[in-house]
Design a protein around this nucleic acid. Structure first.
Lengths: 158, 158
DNA sequence: CACAATTAAGTTGTGCACAACTAAATGGTG
DNA sequence: CACCATTTAGTTGTGCACAACTTAATTGTG
């Protein structure tokens, strides 16, 4: 007598859905990284360094704390990354006079100039992504919802 | 006379769209990782190790090569990861007799048993994700399309 | 004012991703 | 058969993510 408990099948379904989504997400994230990597190599930037430069180009100088909040990165990741951007000559680090705990990151001339050379990057990416604008928007919304749900779940079970 | 070239605005739009999508994707991927990390800590697995175990649970023993193809990971990532899974007692590594270059990864009893304990993971994730099935499906499809486009672009400009 | 709690940045250690390389086995071709 | 190209793992080195911790400055409270 063959006995396959129904609960087992249900679990398998869950497992399969979950597996498919995390695979897709993982794969998409890595594919994105790959394309950025090759595009950014000419500029001498890694992908996370590019994200930091983008926020600096947009907001001017920023304390490390703010960069971390915008990019959801902690000091353990940012400190060495910013040190590398500094030795590459793209940013300067200045201990804040108002609050000596804080360190302000400022673009150098070279860092500011890099923005012009970086303008081609988003164009290449947009072309590579090759999605109609509405899909673009849907994807972004769904990802945001997903992240929100996951963050809420993470906060509920810390 | 104020001259703002239209191309400039266009570039800014591209930059903004690109920035938004790569931020969403990056954030979603990291949120996913975070939830998995806490769930998997009890099992003594990292997220990539869990992905390897999932493929082994599904396919039984596999050569390193096949695992790498399924997960899009190269030997530089897999070799040390598998070594850690081996010293944790979840897998064994056997040099293939038929082809001495190949190494077959096999589940141990402990590795097989872990599957039962891991059954709760996808349920927690599905609950955390909290998306209607159709959104789930849309997201997966869009991510697949995105990855395909990015891979094609990467292949065109290697 | 003193002092404990909090905050900002940095450090250390582990693990993953990936590029570039090595070593050994295999396969194809002259 | 000999030799070279290919294939499979593995190694090395760089950089990111994150947990756990340290240090120094600031803030709040008795």
């Amino acid at each position: 007598m063959v006995t396959t408990p129904p609960a087992r099948t249900h679990d398998e379904d869950y497992l399969r859905l979950d597996l498919q989504l995390c695979f897709s997400l993982h794969a998409a994230s890595r594919a994105f990284n790959g394309v950025y990597r090759t595009l950014l190599k000419d500029l001498g930037l890694t992908y996370p360094q590019y994200l930091v430069m983008l926020t600096l180009w947009e907001h001017g100088e920023l304390p490390v704390k703010s960069i971390g909040e915008k990019l959801r990165l902690d000091s353990g990741t940012l400190s060495p990354l910013l040190k590398r951007l500094e030795s590459a000559g793209f940013v300067e680090r200045h201990r804040s006079r108002a609050d000596e705990r804080s360190v302000t990151i400022r673009l150098t001339g070279q860092g500011t100039d890099l923005r012009e050379r970086a303008r081609v990057v988003p164009q290449h990416i947009a072309r590579a992504v090759n999605l109609p604008p509405e899909d673009f928007h849907t994807l972004r919304t769904l990802l945001a919802t997903l992240t929100e749900g996951l963050d809420a779940a993470a906060a509920a079970h810390p």
